[in-house]
Amino acid sequence: MQARRIGVIHARGLWTFYSFGLFRALRFGLEALVGPVASGMLFLLVFSIAIGGTQDLRGGVTFLQYLAPGIAMFTLIHSAFEMAAFPVIYDKIEGIIQDPLMSPLAPWEVAAGYALTGATVGLMTGGATLMLGWAFVPLPMHDPAVILGFAVAAALLFGMCGTIAGLWAEKWDQLSVVDSFLMLPLAFLSGAFFTVHSVPELGRDLIAMNPVFYAIDGARFGVLGVGDAPLAVGAAVMAALDVAVAVLVWRLFAIGYKIKP
C-alpha cells in the first residue's frame, strides 16, 4: 500500500474541510441565514416607512432603490465576517483546530477553508436579501457581472478578515469588541444607508478610506448603473485588499499565530 499522493493543491482535503465548515454553519440555519436576512429586511422596512420612498436622488434613482443593494451588501459583509470568525474561535476554544492543522493541509488551505465558509454564507445571505429587496423595490439589475464580481470580492475579503479576527480573539467577548467597535462602524459609515453626497467634505474624505464603501458602491453600480466612486477605482481597491489580506492570513496560519505553541 502506498501513501496517497497529494498534488500542489490538496483538492480533496480542501473540499472536505470546506464542506464540513459549510454544513456546520448551515446546521444553525435560523441564526446563520434567516436572522441576517430578516434584519436586512427590517432595515429596508424601517427606512421605507420613515421616508415614504418618494425622495429622488441623482440619476432618477429613488432612495429605496439606492438603499436595497446597500443593505444587501451590508448583510453579506457582516455575515461573511461572523461566519468565518465564529468557527475559528470555536475550534480554538474547543481545541479541535488541531484536526485541520494535523491533516496534510497546507497552512493556506486551512485558512482558505475557514475564509471560504464565511464567504459562502455571506453570499447566501446577501443574495437572499437582494432578491427579497428586489421583490419589493424595482431594481434595474444593470450589470449582473459587476454585482457578482464585487459581491465575491467583498465576501472573500471579509471572510478572510473574520478568520484573522477569530485567530486573534481568545475569548468570545474579544470578538464582540472587534465586531462592535470596528466592523459595525466600518459597515454603517460606508454609504450603505446614505449617499456620500449628504455628508460634509471631511466625512467624505474619511469614507473614501473605508474599504466597505468601495464594496458597496461597486455592487450598487452593478444594480443601478450609478455609483459614487469610479468603478475602476473600486475594483482596484478591492483586488489590492483581497491580495494583501490573503497574504496576511496565509502568513498567520503558516507561523501558527495563536494556534501553535
Binding site: 427606512f47 420613515a50 421616508i51 415614504g52 418618494t54 425622495q55 432612495f63 438603499l67 467577548d173 464582540s176 469588541v177 462592535s180 467597535f181 459595525l184 462602524p185 454603517f188 459609515l189 450603505a192 444607508f193 446614505f194 449628504s198 455628508v199
Partner: peptide, 25 residues
C-alpha cells in the same frame, strides 16, 4: 465594553445614519 460601550456606539451609529439618510427628506 460588550454590555455598555458597544450598545452606546451602536446607538450613536444609528443616530448618524438615520440623520444622514433621512435628514433632507
Amino acid at each position: 465594553a460588550q454590555t455598555l460601550a458597544a450598545p452606546l456606539v451602536t446607538a450613536l451609529l444609528f443616530f448618524l445614519i438615520f440623520n444622514l439618510a433621512l435628514g433632507r427628506a
